[in-house]
Amino acid sequence: MLTIGLTHYLIVSAVLFCAGVFTMATKRNAIGILIGVELVLNSANVNLVAFDRYRAGLMDGQIAALFVIVLAAAEAALAVAICMNFYKNLVTVDVDQGDVLRG
């Protein structure tokens, strides 16, 4: 227990992943769902960096984590823009209301 190893970090990341999935599944606010996505991406990042530290040691995991962070930032910017458009059209950010394309 006292020597921190790879498994410790992986379990933390698993908890973060499940919390993110739960958030994505239950929140109806579009920005709440986005927050869940950020949690999931972070759990993946913890995995990457932990494997890099304990297994590979060639910075590959850290560089992959950097790319994930870049993509997450881009995704957040676009998603907030989409949320604002959603709000402009439907005057709400409740994703259950966005069913105008349903046949």
Binding site: I4, Y9, E38, N42, N45, R53, A65, A72, A73, V80
Partner: peptide, 23 residues
């Protein structure tokens, strides 16, 4: 703690200082 200081600093600057404020 994982000795990935650059990732840690980037996490702070991009996620906390950028994405979170955007949200």
């Amino acid at each position: 703690l994982l000795a990935a200081t650059f990732i840690a600093a980037i996490q702070l600057i991009v996620y906390v200082g950028g994405v979170l404020i955007l949200l």
